[in-house]
Computed example of a mutant assay.
Amino acid sequence: MPVSPSPAPAPALSAVVARLRAAGCVFAEDEAELLLSAARTPAELATLVERRAIGHPLEHVLGWADFRGLRITVDPGVFVPRRRTEFLVEQALALTPPGAVVVDLCCGSGALGTALVSALPGRAELYAADVDPAAVRCARRNVAGVGGRVHVGDLYDALPVALRGRIDILLANVPYVPTGEIGLLPTEARVHEARVALDGGADGLDVLRRVTRAAVDWLAPGGHLLFETSERQAGEAVETVTRDGLVPQVASSDELYATVVIGTRPDVPGRTTASDEPRP
């Protein structure tokens, strides 16, 4: 029977903490303990510590991120789910009906869809999509545990056509950093995460507009689109949602510094959308 490698010796803790502190890691003690628990040999520990010290995100070094109590696999280069985005999942939980069809658009690691479906009391259909093949490979490992499917492609183009008009919850953690502000991001994000997951265009809302433009055709009557934005972008985001036929609502969390906009497709008898029209 193979023997598991012994953990790194306890005296290494102080040395790891000192190295991380010297590199500017604010939570050096906590990070050191995580790195020590992840390393199987002293050589592996040295590699992990050095990667963290030169600026790789802790989640990329460990290979996972804690998101709503779940250990989400995060590969190098893939967008790291932020704690503030847990607020978006909380909002979605309150709106998700039994047996819901859930789509995680711009899914990255698939953290949002995985966390939402994991927290539901019953079964749900989960579909996720991203334009970045590396993110899709990562997401497939995360959503497998909840029976989800992941597709690669540009927004709705990636989704099965059969989902048109059937989506109850559409999670869209779209990139919303204005192009001109990418250079102001922390090095961890700017250098080590895919730019396509960060850059939202000139005003940060380019991708969002593409999502809202077609949302009413993909949502079921009464279905909800939820996305995160900044506090200063919320007003224009609400206007975009309204213009594209959805009823907007804004939720915010001071504790998490999170702003979420919810757009609901009106459940109006007799309303016709592109998905309802007869096809040739």
Rank of each mutant, 00 (worst) to 15 (best):
V117M: 01
G113C: 10
D132V: 14
D104T: 09
L95V: 06
A124G: 03
S118F: 02
L120A: 03
V136Q: 12
A129L: 08
Y127E: 12
G99P: 03
E125W: 04
D132G: 02
V103P: 02
P97D: 01
P98T: 08
S109H: 04
G99N: 10
V103I: 01
L120K: 06
A134S: 14
D130F: 02
S109V: 12
R123A: 15
A111V: 15
L116S: 10
E125F: 01
L116T: 11
V136S: 11
A134V: 15
D104E: 04
G122R: 14
S118E: 13
G110P: 11
A100E: 05
G113W: 00
L116K: 06
G113I: 11
A119K: 04
L95G: 05
S118P: 07
D132A: 11
A111I: 15
A135F: 05
V103C: 01
A135L: 05
S118R: 11
P121K: 14
G110N: 12
A115S: 15
A119Y: 10
D132S: 14
C138E: 09
A115E: 12
D130N: 05
C138G: 06
R140L: 09
Y127G: 08
R140F: 03
P133I: 10
R141I: 09
R137D: 13
A135C: 08
A100P: 00
A139N: 10
P133S: 14
D104A: 01
A135W: 03
C107D: 03
L126V: 04
D130Q: 02
A124S: 15
V102I: 03
V101N: 00
G110E: 12
G108K: 02
T96K: 01
R123L: 13
C138K: 04
R123T: 13
V117K: 01
C106I: 11
L126W: 03
D132H: 07
C107P: 05
C138V: 09
C107A: 09
V136T: 15
A115T: 14
V103S: 01
L126R: 04
P121E: 14
G110T: 15
L126A: 10
L120R: 09
L120F: 04
R137T: 09
A111K: 05
C138F: 07
G113S: 08
P98Q: 10
L112H: 14
A135M: 08
T114L: 06
R140H: 01
P97A: 07
G113E: 02
A129D: 06
R123W: 09
E125M: 11
L105G: 02
V101F: 00
V136F: 09
R140Y: 02
G122C: 08
V117C: 04
V103A: 02
R141S: 12
